[in-house]
Simulated scan of single mutants.
Amino acid sequence: MSETVSRIVTTRIQDPGAIAEAAARRVKAKSVLGDNGRAMVIAADHPARGANAVGGDPSAMADRGELLDRLCVALERPGVTGVLGTADILEDLLLLGVLDGKSVFGSMNRGGLAGSSFEIDDRFTGYDAEAIAAMGFDGGKMLTRIALDDPATASVLENSARAVDELNDRELIAMVEPFLSHWADGRVRNDLTPDAVIKSITIASGLGRRTARTWLKLPVVDDMERVLASSTLPVLLLGGEVKDADAAFTAWQRALALPTVQGLVVGRSLLYPANGGVAGAVDRAVSLL
């Protein structure tokens, strides 16, 4: 067990109140867009949905000590403005004291476990708006998959709309990550054609009784200028698992020039880059901003 993990475990056992104390004294970010007016958020909420695989390693993200070490390296890099995670990970980072000056987003719904028969029925098993506000964080993120062939989609939309309302009521950002999805060969597939992404955007943009603090977390697909013309909501581009780093960075750079795009939310491709270290991958992404 690494020294980092040992220290966290000892604190959790002997002084669990230290987590709330660390949250209370954390220095908050002046803006979610950072000093340069662009967001670079590191995402680390995959394990809670059982999605631990990176590349050919099915359990890459399951080693918590290594994940935390990689997160610490990423968060120390100039230009990184924030982090997105579930309570277990964000509390570990609070205890490590690495969230000062960073925007923090709590992941809200992780109940649609990867590969499960109920994957679309993505229950809110993580943060709620009350806890996000109590911790002094900046907002909450919800994965909102819209599967027209799955009746669970109705409750997904209802619960996402409720979360948008509760976050807006507390003047917190509601980060909605929509996909038009379908079942194929027993698995959920996201449709990444431009028209499908446009439809997901228009549906997600209408969730809730207020949208003043709703942001969208969107994939980079073909014809992004037409895709992003479908909403005036601020957009953060998601990374996903990148197979061709050069092609991904080129696509991000092109999309970042569009007016609604405010930055990037990237996880595995920066924390577990195929070539090189975490610092180099993060610095390259930051350079696009």
Rank of each mutant, 00 (worst) to 15 (best):
G239D: 04
D195L: 07
I198S: 15
T214G: 09
D15R: 13
V286Y: 08
R226D: 02
E225I: 00
V220Q: 06
S117R: 12
D63P: 00
D45R: 11
E66R: 12
A74F: 00
F105L: 13
L96W: 08
A184P: 00
V278S: 06
R284K: 10
L218W: 10
T214S: 15
R187H: 05
D122G: 08
L289M: 13
T202A: 11
L238P: 00
L167P: 02
D45Y: 05
V266R: 04
L143A: 04
G136F: 11
D169A: 12
S181R: 03
D244K: 15
L180P: 00
G277K: 00
V242R: 14
R26G: 06
T81R: 13
G126Q: 09
E119N: 03
P178L: 12
Y272A: 01
D121I: 02
D57H: 02
A134R: 06
D222V: 04
I201S: 05
A161Y: 07
A279C: 07
T153S: 04
R268L: 05
L236T: 00
A247Q: 14
K243W: 03
R145E: 00
V104G: 01
A251V: 03
I198M: 13
V176Y: 04
R64F: 11
K102D: 12
M40S: 12
G126V: 09
T144Q: 03
A281Q: 01
L207F: 13
G239M: 03
K243D: 13
L143G: 00
R213F: 12
V242Y: 14
G277R: 02
I19W: 08
R70K: 02
A53F: 02
G37C: 06
H46L: 06
S103A: 14
V220P: 03
G65K: 11
G56K: 00
G140I: 01
G240Q: 04
A247R: 15
S269D: 11
L216A: 14
S230I: 01
G206D: 05
A147H: 08
A163Y: 04
P178T: 11
A39Y: 08
A44L: 04
I203W: 02
N275S: 12
V261Q: 12
N275W: 07
G111H: 03
V242M: 15
V188R: 07
F137M: 15
G56I: 00
G126D: 08
V242C: 15
G126Y: 08
T202F: 09
G186F: 02
R12N: 07
A18M: 05
S205N: 12
V282S: 01
H46Q: 15
V266A: 14
L270N: 07
C72R: 14
M224E: 00
S2C: 10
A248V: 03
Y272T: 01
M1K: 11
S31W: 14
G277P: 01
A60H: 01
A24S: 15
M40N: 15
I120E: 10
V104H: 02
V104M: 02
